[in-house]
């Protein structure tokens, strides 16, 4: 395989488009594939099969051929509200997964105090930013401030729009009062129950890294259910 193909994979991964790596196992040739691109002579004869596997996001040696395909899907968009200590560990753990994180916090003090590397941080009220985001079934929202005036509008936005995962930090009691507020604002039980709250898988830990681990574990669990 040519080193240029590996360099292209790194480059393409940082753009948000999806693509696939193809290998012709009978002659050792490889190339990257996108729907709009032409296939070279090494792969042309298998165009239909390749497109079929690409559309189904199926990986492996295509049945009855010597063509291997590996799909590179877009990262999961994770919007975190609250540039708090737990968010630092979420960023740390997320590096091992196909996740793209954006942090929103209207409190300038938090934005300045915490250090986040290579992460988009927005110092603004979440409802203002969320309105500009095109969410889909690959978008997740995690609210961490447990301050109703910051968290609630973000949660309300997520319940009205397409998010595959919505999680809210807070004790059982905090979450109960949060649910009551949402109910008063006219949200249905079904909508409210879709929030993972208290957020995270139960690991029994109370420290920031332990809570972040339980959140990431739950996010990975929900992501794996998506079949993407």
């Amino acid at each position: 395989m040519k080193i240029e193909i590996l360099q292209k994979i790194i480059k393409k991964k940082s753009s948000k488009k999806r693509f696939a790596l193809l290998k012709n196992l009978s002659n050792g040739k490889s190339e990257l594939f996108e729907l709009e691109n032409q296939l070279s002579d090494d792969f042309k004869a298998h165009k239909k099969n390749i497109e079929n596997y690409y559309n189904l996001k199926k990986n492996g040696v295509i049945n009855g051929t010597k063509i291997f395909i590996q799909n590179y899907t877009k990262p999961i968009e994770v919007i975190i509200v609250g540039a708090v200590h737990i968010a630092q560990y979420l960023v740390e753990f997320s590096k091992n997964f196909n996740l793209k994180i954006t942090i929103i916090d209207p409190r300038e003090y938090f934005i300045k105090k915490q250090k986040f590397e290579n992460i988009k941080i927005i110092n603004e009220w979440p409802e203002k930013i969320l309105k500009q985001i095109q969410s889909d079934n690959r978008t997740a929202l995690i609210v961490l401030t447990h301050d109703p005036k910051i968290d609630d509008p973000a949660l309300q936005f997520a319940l009205k729009n397409k998010f595959f995962y919505v999680g809210a930090l807070g004790s059982k009691k905090t979450h109960e009062t949060r649910c009551q507020r949402l109910k008063k604002s006219g949200y249905t039980d079904k909508q409210i129950n879709s929030i993972h709250g208290p957020i995270g898988l139960k690991l029994g830990g109370k420290s920031a890294p332990e809570i972040a681990l339980s959140i990431i574990a739950q996010l990975v669990l929900e992501t794996n259910k998506l079949n993407i």
């Binding site: 590996l6 994979i9 790194i10 991964k13 091992n96 997964f97 196909n98 990975v220 992501t223």
Partner: peptide, 17 residues
């Protein structure tokens, strides 16, 4: 879920070359 360590491996290959 595609894991990102793959990119680390690819980057390492590029650096070895």
């Amino acid at each position: 879920m595609k894991k990102l360590p793959e990119l680390e491996i690819i980057e390492e290959a590029i650096s070895w070359r």
